[in-house]
Design a protein around this nucleic acid. Structure first.
Lengths: 226, 226
DNA sequence: GGGCAGGGTTAAATTAATGTTAACCGATTA
DNA sequence: TAATCGGTTAACATTAATTTAACCCTGCCC
């Protein structure tokens, strides 16, 4: 049972607003509009859009600010935000990703492209919502939607890094992950943290889950025990 | 005798395609492109890429579908698939890894990062291809992934040097390895250890595995008994 | 038998790697 | 502003891996 998807379009130019609105409505989307960031936030609260199409360049409160603001509100954490950017050239420098944008579409907008991309994005969102995101290994269940870990039926709360670390190890039970690899995957490329940091997180996981789930292979790394 | 690595880049936006292609070619890679998943599968069959760089978000057939499909075909089981994800997502949020992706790179893409990462990934792939992760000799199985040795079904834990030493000997069962060679391979060039050290490690392996697996050839070295 | 070459064995010494704790910092929240 | 939480680090403790040293076989040759 499919209900129509709701899209909020935000742009300070009313021609563009009209143009996009027209095309989206033709596709069967429910559309709301706003002229600036402040208005967008206002409207969002009642309209509860599935996706927000946000012009980067706006007076008063620009797209990036708006996006950052929206993403900071828990109720919109799962709302997709797509930027409209002036040109794709420097797409590698789109600051919006830092603000939490999920994708972007380059102007000038071609109706066909707009529609295909939005369809793709929403389809993906749907999949993410439906798809079970659970990882089950032995009596441990890791659910990345709720950010919870279960041992049997007992709920266990892990902090973010702990969660990511456990998730990584559990994604290939039995395989030993080297410290370098763990750092790259959980901490990222640029971040440089000291070796002990991993140990401390491992310790916290063991403290919460029990000592039998994560094994140490000295001189090599850690693994999830099967 | 290195032949250039082949990379297939898949994205629905031609700017991105061009941008990535340009950077990869500059690095000496052979590059093919595709606009969507269906095309990617088509091209792969003739181009036989070593690695596929796959945008997650695409209309028609998205990255995850495409990846799952490719991985289901035996001929691409060993092709590395790397996702391009829009957000800088946490590891566990990458839905794609369940579809069999080997790695991911977050947009926006910085050319330098892209190249570094791909080089690293391809190096890893090469290593995996050369050094098989599992070694089976008689009733002994040596598994690099988990750093475990099995005698029959019995799990045996070896320390790192012991493991490397056994792995070396077992890589050519029956062949006698001289002490010098063993030192070079297991200990490395710089390290200078006394001769007895090898004996002690051999002894520990025999202690854990049994006396019948490693043979001594006086005046020459050691070998794995067939 | 004595001596020696080549390992084998053991335990002690050393070093490397990880575990643990407490403290600090910054962000967020009460 | 205090309090809490997550993340990180530094300092120290603990444990295990590795190496060394000392001594023991065994076979061989004179």
């Amino acid at each position: 049972m499919e209900t129509a998807r709701k899209i909020l379009v935000v742009d300070d130019e009313s021609d563009i607003l009209d143009f996009i609105t027209y095309n989206l409505k033709k596709e069967g989307y429910l559309v709301a509009t706003a002229f600036n960031g402040a208005q967008a936030i206002e409207v969002s609260k009642t309209f509860k859009p599935d996706l927000i199409l946000l012009d980067v360049m706006m007076p008063v409160m620009d797209g990036i600010e708006t996006c950052a603001h929206l993403k900071s509100l828990p109720e919109f954490a799962k709302t997709f935000i797509v930027f409209l950017t002036a040109r794709a050239e420097e797409y590698s420098e789109i600051a919006g990703f830092q603000a939490g944008a999920d994708d972007y579409i380059a102007k000038p907008i071609k109706p066909k492209v707009l529609i295909t991309r939005l369809n793709a994005i929403l389809r993906r969102k749907e999949k993410e919502e439906t798809a079970s995101t659970k990882l089950i290994v032995g009596d441990i269940t890791i659910d990345r939607d709720s950010f919870l870990v279960y041992r049997g039926t007992e709920k266990i709360q892990l902090a973010r890094k702990e969660f990511e670390l456990l998730f990584l190890l559990a994604s290939k039970p039995g395989k030993v992950f080297t410290r370098d690899y763990i750092l790259e995957k959980v901490w990222g490329d640029e971040v440089l943290v000291v070796d002990r940091t991993i140990d401390v997180h491992i310790r916290k996981i063991r403290e919460k889950l029990g000592d039998d789930y994560i094994g140490t292979v000295k001189g090599v790394g850690y693994k999830f025990e099967i």
